[in-house]
């Protein structure tokens, strides 16, 4: 029975992969690929290009990382000795609690708080923008990144604490010269995991980014990501030509997941210290 259960679980992974592959199959030819890899998305005109969405996904996830990475580094350092001891636990508690806040709640609150703020502060467009989505997305991926960093730092920091103190280093100097260089794997792993989460999230870009199909010119412009694109097109139920491009989006997202996992494995290397 145990073996049957394990077999079913593995079959589930295979099934997901095979179904995506089966429905994305028409794309694996030069003309199929050319049909999808173009800039025009006009489902009623027979143009099913998803390049704008790829650009959208890349822009949004990288900008969310740029905001979230330094913040999570700061928090992880604060929790592991750079801040006052009695504040470390509450701050870590808040971060752990953040993992349990539903994505759709983040999106909902931002629609009525952040979006109007951006609209009035910059007086440009509707406020549903790359900026709004990037800020909320960074808040969403932050706990993942902090917790990975924290598990690394909490192993490394006690090991070097005495040495650093004996050398007369301050806490900050100990982090810069000892803990961070020793935690390279953890830093990389947290970045990769955070990036994976940012690419895969649907609700934040769907609710906040405005979903216009064109490459953005400024952070106040509206963009559409691959994930939001899938949700929008399935919901509006267009022709079967559009479906093929959907599975292209799904395939790209799946391959990103594979790359993220391979990256994590590569970072972890031989010793399991990442």
């Amino acid at each position: 029975m145990l073996h049957a259960a394990a077999a079913v679980s593995c079959l589930a992974v295979l099934a997901v992969f095979l179904f995506l592959l089966r429905f994305a199959a028409p794309l694996f030819s030069t003309e199929g690929l050319a049909k999808v890899m173009q800039w025009r998305w006009e489902p009623f005109g027979g143009h099913f290009g998803i390049l704008p969405m790829i650009v959208g996904t890349v822009c949004l996830s990288i900008s969310a990382m740029v905001v979230a990475a330094p913040l999570s580094l700061g928090i992880a350092c604060f929790v592991n000795g750079m801040g006052p001891k009695r504040l470390a636990r509450p701050v870590l508690g808040v971060v752990q609690f953040m993992t349990s806040i539903p994505t759709v709640v983040y999106g909902f609150v931002a629609v009525f708080l952040l979006v109007p703020f951006i609209r009035s502060a910059f007086a440009h467009g509707s406020g549903f923008s790359w900026l709004a989505a990037a800020l909320m997305l960074s808040l969403l991926i932050l706990p993942t990144m902090v917790l990975v960093l924290h598990s690394q730092f909490s192993q490394v920091e006690p090991e070097v604490r005495l040495t650093a103190a004996a050398l007369g280093l301050s806490k900050a100097q100990a982090f810069v010269h000892l803990v961070l260089p020793l935690s390279r794997r953890g830093l990389l792993a947290s970045a990769i995991l955070g990036f994976g989460r940012a690419v895969g999230d649907t609700l934040i870009p769907l609710m906040l980014a405005g979903n216009a199909v064109k490459p953005p010119e400024s952070v106040l412009d509206s963009i559409r990501t691959l994930t939001a694109h899938i949700a929008l097109v399935v919901a509006t139920d267009s022709s079967s030509g559009a479906y093929h491009s959907l599975f292209a989006c799904g395939m790209i997202l799946f391959l990103t997941t594979v790359a993220v996992n391979a990256g994590l494995r590569w970072v972890a290397g031989g010793n399991g210290r990442a």
Binding site: A6, S9, C10, A12, V13, A15, V16, F19, L20, R22, F23, G196, V199, G200, D201, T202, T227, I230, A231, V234, L246, F247, G250, L253, F254, T257, V258, V260, N261, L264, R265
Partner: peptide, 23 residues
């Protein structure tokens, strides 16, 4: 098997929805 599980854990939920749609 561990690799497959980790892979499954990382798949974005919208892709899982798309799997249902393909089904």
């Amino acid at each position: 098997m561990v690799f497959a599980t980790d892979l499954l854990a990382g798949i974005p939920s919208i892709v899982m929805g798309l799997f249902g749609f393909a089904l």
